[in-house]
Write a protein that binds this DNA or RNA. Structure first.
Lengths: 239, 239
DNA sequence: TAGTGGTCTAGACCACAGG
DNA sequence: CTGTGGTCTAGACCACTAG
């Protein structure tokens, strides 16, 4: 485990346990460097990641402080938002189930060729899955993946987890994702599977996911029932 | 200007100008350190920020590469997403206008007291503004700000820019924001001002904005016409 | 003025990729 | 093996806050 990551987790725990209470000043970087037998730069890195998470705020000259964030509990999503958006629902993964609506192999259209850097002769999986929480559908996901990049997908894999297949079976690492969020009207799929009324809005997340070597391996559109969850995020403002 | 920021801007420009073409390997950190007469740590910081922006990807052992991101042009939002969401529409700020629908002073309700850390006796501005692009309404924003924290707001300020009042007139610095994005049904305000039909979805962004000392100074809900823009973002996956 | 965080350096060691 | 990026150190200087 990387040092600064380990330290940042310890500090995060102290914040969540109120060992460092809201609005209080945490020890100086020098004090923390001494406590963890490390250098100030490493402490700084750990603190920076907690600032990025919205838990701390630093003021040159006066110190580093715990942010009073009443929404802190809505922020447990951090770290596994790549599991679709299920993480925003909390940690109740046991209650989540998946149903495969469609699983076919196709040739990519032009848009998909550009997005996933494919020739038209390189086939892709076209997968539609319905996700349910306590047997209530909340998300319908249309996924496209190139067979060449992610081989060996089967119904079994789909019912379990594509991501563990990619990471554990294929030994690939996921690097980053790029998303566009919109509100849209429900289409026939949404009405059928998400049980949407015609005037129910749908939250659409369009996503391109990259491996850690920069190769795009997934294009997907997830469609969410408007009354089952949103997307939470935290921004640092650039100066 | 901070060194690593300056360097990252130069590198970013080289990427956008295809001096470092898509998928190509950029010079090693050592080479860049030499070119910019700086240390490798500083180069690393610059590269890290471009990785966070989704422009680069690094591989230990082989080098740092330009990501082929077909959506790169949709990513010009970086840096001023705190100007509401107008930045996602491009850089066409000249075509954007604001109309103040409501500007009153109220006492905060319980939720607002908790969110902005206020007593019920500390009044807040309650502002509703309609934003238009080429005279077409696209966003309706409900804003609450404590008078104590952000004094001196007038109609004139509202018609110009709240943020330049905060930063330039009051000399305060904006630190971070916390957002929740949802799809919702239009309410009467939306129908009136955004000219939504009953079955048009609305993209709602709930937001708490903090000063750089960690004090929350704004709670707002922006409501967007579903056909005028979405929200774009980029994620690095944690390992 | 003393203490704090922000930035930077020069050098080191490691893990990993590729020949 | 060599070269790459990932991480870390010890020390330095600066900008800012607060007493």
């Amino acid at each position: 485990m990387i040092q600064h990551k380990k330290i940042s987790r310890i500090i995060e725990k102290r914040i969540r346990d109120h060992i460092y209470p809201p609005l209080s000043k945490i020890p100086t970087q020098n004090e923390l460097a001494e406590e963890f037998h490390t250098s100030r730069v490493t402490i700084k890195k750990a603190i920076d990641s907690l600032i990025a998470k919205g838990l701390l705020v630093s003021n040159r000259g006066s110190g580093t402080f715990v942010k009073s964030n009443p929404l802190i509990n809505e922020m447990n999503f951090s770290g596994d938002s790549y599991l679709g958006l299920t993480a925003t629902m909390g940690t109740e993964k046991g209650r989540i189930s998946s149903e495969v609506i469609k699983f076919e192999i196709e040739f990519p259209n032009l848009r998909l060729q550009k997005t996933l850097l494919l020739e038209k002769s390189q086939p892709v999986y076209h997968i539609i899955r319905l996700r349910k929480l306590d047997n209530e559908p909340f998300q319908l996901e249309h996924t496209f993946m190139p067979i060449e990049v992610i081989p060996g997908i089967t119904m079994e894999v789909l019912e379990h987890s594509i991501y563990s297949h990619i990471q554990d079976t294929l030994g690939l690492k996921i690097g980053s994702s790029f998303r566009i969020v919109k509100a849209v009207k429900p289409d026939d799929f949404d009405k059928n599977y998400l049980l949407c009324q015609s005037d129910d809005p749908v939250l659409e997340v369009e996503q391109v996911v990259y491996l850690d070597n920069g190769i795009p391996f997934e294009y997907s559109r997830s469609r969410h029932r408007y009354d089952k969850g949103g997307i939470v995020f935290n921004n640092q403002i650039e100066r």
